[in-house]
Design a binder for these strands. Structure first.
Lengths: 103, 103
DNA sequence: TCAAACCTTGACGCTGATGTCAAGGTCAAC
DNA sequence: GTTGACCTTGACATCAGCGTCAAGGTTTGA
């Protein structure tokens, strides 16, 4: 999506055509992005966690990882945990309700 | 919020003033609704799970619980579980990345 | 009683994520 | 070389959740 590109979530190379050329990795990333959007994250939150989504990140990049980046990641991690707790709590409420109905 | 009322998430009684009067329970519900919205749920999903959010639902209501309601609740429960899985997976990716950085 | 503070409704605007449409460039194939 | 399919950009439309503002009614209190 051009929207993701404009948001800085993915990149594309351009041929002489000026046509976009998406790498295989980018296509996979699009899947992850869509998943996260469907899960309720914003594009900004997704952009923040992008560095963690590199598939074979064996050669982990220490360069350019500022302390702000680390702080942002810790923040996103904590917000994700909060989100997960809220959702799990409510899912359990639904499950409990359903089992009570089925007595 | 009037918005929630229009969406059928909460109700209010009106005095002779025509002023809205919110019950204590409704105010608590508003908190839950906001929490769920912040966690990325839509108002429609929230409305679907509202019957499960009654605080002291000891006198559980079997009346008016149609099989569609049950099916909708099971659906929401499953979608919540999917969401939780996606978020947990990505939170763990962030956590792993952070620990790798801190070696 | 009169003004300030608060409520009502309705309309309008905004942001974020997407969809769509028009006007043009490019490419494949006949 | 012309047609049709596909790409480009830019503009505009849409939907959800929310904020705001105007015009009027209500309450409070000095």
């Amino acid at each position: 999506m051009r929207f993701y590109e404009a948001k800085g979530l993915i990149t594309s190379t351009r041929g002489a055509n000026n046509y976009r050329d998406y790498s295989e990795a980018t296509l996979g990333r699009v899947q992850q992005i869509r998943e996260l959007l469907k899960a309720g994250l914003s594009t900004q939150a997704i952009r923040a966690i992008l560095p963690c989504l590199e598939s074979p990140r064996d050669p982990i990049v220490f360069e350019g990882v500022t302390s702000e980046t680390v702080a942002a990641l810790e923040h996103e991690r904590d917000r994700l945990t909060e989100r997960i707790d809220v959702l799990a709590r409510n899912r359990d409420a639904i499950a409990d309700y359903l089992t009570e109905l089925q007595v």
